[in-house]
């Protein structure tokens, strides 16, 4: 499964993405090693969400190469064979959305079980205990039989994290996971994400504006500006020794 060169979980090479004539990503190169937490930040429209969505092919990269868990795919048009490869790649990359996107016609437990049962073809009876365990891990053991509509935003997002975790991904992609939440609910979601990083040593790519979380948890931070990674470094480097005025301006605005 692993690619011959190196053992990075995610590898992005010269990634370009156009929406029509608008170039959103202008040649991104990025490698994420196992256990790393990469925080991606930057102004809205700078391409950070698009990068995440290109990594699991929710958007088709216009050009470049994406590699997740050794599955290496080129950008450009989809072919029948590539579609299968994309599906296989996606099972290795768990995605958490800004708007949760839980399945409203299923209980929390059913949401978590859906992937392993339907996509991986496991028996429901074998998945159920594992799903309950994961729900307990995100602190929602008692909400297993609740429908999403009866859960708060923070609880819904934690179920969404559990749903992604249940696929046992090699990397978790977080696309602004707390942006749609009321301020008092943000903490519970960040706590779950923090324990993912510290306890499970999960490889994570997080698009977020929560700079406190980034400072504490991130092993690396990438500042996106107009479709390129303008500045990259450890939290200390980014916060204490900011190199670019654009980064400083953005940090001043959000801190």
């Amino acid at each position: 499964m692993r690619a011959a060169n190196g053992d990075a979980v995610v590898r992005v090479e010269n990634l370009h993405k156009y929406f029509g004539t608008n170039e959103v990503l202008k040649g991104i190169n990025l490698e994420v090693d196992p256990g790393e937490v990469v925080v991606i930040f930057g102004r809205s429209g700078s391409g950070k969400s698009t990068l995440l969505r290109c990594i699991n092919f929710l958007e088709d990269p216009t050009d470049g190469v994406i590699e997740v868990a050794g599955i290496r795919l080129e950008g450009g048009h989809r072919t029948r064979g590539k579609r299968e490869e994309i599906r296989r790649l996606r099972t290795h990359a768990g995605m958490v959305f800004q708007q949760f996107n839980l399945f409203p016609h299923m209980t929390a437990l059913q949401n978590v079980m859906e992937g392993p049962v339907i996509v991986k073809g496991f028996k429901a009876d074998t998945v159920r205990p594992m799903a309950r365990e994961i729900l307990a891990k995100v602190g929602l053991a008692d909400k297993a039989d609740a429908y999403p509509i009866h859960l708060s935003g923070g609880q819904q997002q934690r179920v969404a994290i559990a749903r992604a975790l249940a696929m046992e991904p090699d990397v978790m992609l977080f696309d602004e996971p707390t942006s749609a939440l009321d301020p008092e609910l943000i903490g519970e979601v960040l706590n779950v994400m923090r324990s993912l990083a510290t306890e499970l040593h999960m490889t994570m790519m997080v698009v977020t504006h929560e700079m406190g979380f980034a400072r504490e948890v991130a092993s690396r931070m990438c500042f996106f500006h107009e479709g390129v990674i303008l500045e990259e470094g450890t939290p200390t480097e980014i916060f204490e020794h900011t190199r670019f005025p654009e980064t400083q301006k953005f940090l001043d605005a959000v801190l």
Partner: peptide
């Protein structure tokens, strides 16, 4: 909602 299809896609469906 479009998000539902995306969530399903992201699971590899």
């Amino acid at each position: 909602g479009h998000g539902q299809a995306e969530a399903a896609d992201a699971l590899g469906m």
